[in-house]
Structures are given as C-alpha cells and as structure tokens.
Computed example of a mutant assay.
Amino acid sequence: MSGTPRRGHDTVADGARRVTPRLTVLFAIYLALLVWTVLWKLDVPWTGTTQRTVKLVPFVASGGHGASQPFEVAMNLLLFVPAGLYLGLLAPAWRWWKVIGAVAGASLGLETAQFVLAVGSSDVTDVVANTAGGLAGLCLLALARRRLGRRTATVLVRACAVATVLALLASAAFVASPVRLGGPPPGGMREPGIRAVRDGVRHDARSTSSTGRPSTSQPSTSRPSPESAPGRNRAGSPRAASPVAAVVPSGPVRAVSPATP
C-alpha cells in the first residue's frame, strides 16, 4: 500500500535523530580542525600582506605555476571525506547533489579566504579534490547503510568520535614538534619580536635571509687580520716600542721620558 511507511528507512532516520547532538559536536570540531589545517597548516593564525597566488587551471602547470603534486591532491581529497559523511548523516533528506554543492561551496570559501588573507595559494585543483572527497564520503555512507541498516548512525558516530580524538591528539603532537608545513612570508603580519627555536638554534623573525628563512643567531668566529693585530705593522713585522709611552698590562698607563745624558 502507498500509505504504508518504509520501516527500514524510518528506523535509519530515527537512529540519526537520536545521535544528532553528538554528531553536531563532532562536526563542529571537524570544521575547526579543517579551517586551521587549510588556512594555517596547524600553525599560529597569521595574515599576509601582498603575496597572493591564484591557479585557475587544475592539475597541470599553467601561468607560471607548477603542476599539482599527487600527495597534495590526495591530502585535499582525504580532508573532505568526513564532510560528506557528516552532511549525509545530519541532513539525510538532502539529495546527493545538494551535499556535493555544499562541500564545493565550503571549499571555494576556504580558497577565497586564503586569497583575502594572503595565507596561501588559491588553486582550482583544491576545489576539485575537496569536492571529490565529499563525494567519496557520501559513497562510504551509502555503503555503510547497505551493510549496517538501522545501526548505521550509531556505528558511524562511534567511528567519528574515535577519529576525532585521534585527530586532536595528532594535531597536538604536530604543534609540539619542530616540524612546520607553512608559515608567514617575510612580509607577513606576525609580531616581529617572536623568536622560534628549531633544532636547538634560536631564530629571529626580524632578520630574514634572501630565501625567506629567518637568520640564526650564531657567535662570530671571525679573527682579526694580521694587519690589525696588535704589535704588528702593515708589513707584518713587529712594531718598535715607543720611547715616550708604554702600557703596563697590570697597572695604569705610565709616561716614561727618555733618559737624559
């Protein structure tokens, strides 16, 4: 009968409604980590000045920009797989193209923020890879619904909770390590007096080399030239002692007059 409700669909929807508060919290944590990772690469938030880069042709080299690296494309895809999962669970009534449109819009917003804040390269490749990641998340959700049925929401919430805890621990370990994926350019707006310690060497952000890396504070190891060494003239021969004045190392300067006959 047309009026008979579909029991399987209703049980899945009821399970999703029961776990919605926990899903919302996990989704908020995911979004915060996503924005921090994409914009600032898990570094201290900063803003640039004039260095803005836009690459409009995906994947291949164009306009003076190199081709996209496979590792970066894969990472951009994996970062947005949870977005498809979360949106599919939180908005089960949405058609798949609405979820994909929301993922693509979020990716485009992050790329626009990178351009406005001058904190990275705005690349169409990232939008394509992010959207593909959201689609992959939707496919995983559809596969889980086929296998798990009414237990889909409960199992996925537990899996997302474990993944969130692992992501938070990994982020904390990365922040505590000396490794950095990015940082402010030489003209960035970070406080100039901040010093960082890398590999036991102190770096000063106020002095940078031509390569954009902060110069390290190393003790001077220069030695005086033979011409400037005390007790020697330009020819390198010892200087004759002056008969008028002599310096006594352990006492004050004394004036000595030549002996009179």
Results as ranks from 00 to 15, higher is better:
Arg195Gln: 14
Val35Tyr: 04
Gly182Asp: 11
Gly105Trp: 05
Val175Pro: 01
Asp126Thr: 13
Gly84Met: 06
Pro258Asp: 12
Val248Trp: 09
Arg223Ser: 10
Phe80Gln: 00
Leu143Pro: 00
Glu227Val: 11
Cys139Phe: 03
Leu85Trp: 01
Val127Glu: 04
Arg18Glu: 07
Arg146Gly: 10
Arg52Cys: 09
Arg190Thr: 12
Arg180Lys: 10
Ala91Asn: 07
Val247Asp: 13
Gly182Val: 06
Gly88Phe: 00
Val81Cys: 04
Trp94Glu: 00
Val247Phe: 14
Thr37Ile: 04
Arg52Glu: 05
Ala245Asp: 11
Trp36Glu: 10
Lys41Phe: 08
Ala118Glu: 06
Arg202Trp: 05
Glu111Pro: 12
Thr50Tyr: 07
Pro5Thr: 06
Gly3Glu: 06
Arg95Gly: 00
Leu89Thr: 05
Leu148Gln: 08
Val127Leu: 04
Thr152His: 02
Ser177Tyr: 03
Gly182Lys: 03
Ala144Arg: 00
Ser2Lys: 02
Thr50Glu: 14
Leu23Glu: 04
Ser228Arg: 14
Pro186Ile: 07
Thr37Met: 10
Ala172Asn: 07
Gly200His: 02
Phe174Arg: 01
Asp43Ser: 14
Val116Asp: 10
Val128Phe: 12
Thr112Asp: 01
His203Asn: 13
Ser207Gln: 11
Gly182Ala: 14
Pro226Trp: 08
Pro185Asp: 13
Thr164Val: 04
Gly137Lys: 02
Trp40Val: 10
Ser242Pro: 10
Gly133Cys: 05
Thr152Val: 01
Gly134Lys: 00
Leu85Tyr: 00
Thr260Gly: 15
Gly149Gln: 06
Met189Phe: 03
Cys160His: 07
Gly137Glu: 08
Glu227Asp: 06
Gly134Leu: 03
Leu26Tyr: 01
Pro261Tyr: 02
Gly188Ser: 15
Val35Pro: 08
Val165Phe: 08
Thr50Trp: 13
Thr24Arg: 14
Pro258His: 06
Leu141Asp: 00
Val256Trp: 13
Arg232Gln: 13
Val19Gly: 01
Ser209His: 12
Ala28Gly: 15
Leu56Val: 15
Ser242Arg: 13
Lys98Leu: 00
Gly48Arg: 06
Ala61His: 01
Thr37Asn: 13
Arg146Val: 07
Gln51Glu: 15
Gly88Ile: 00
Lys98Asp: 00
Thr216Gly: 09
Ala161Cys: 00
Gly182Leu: 03
Gly120His: 05
Trp96Ile: 00
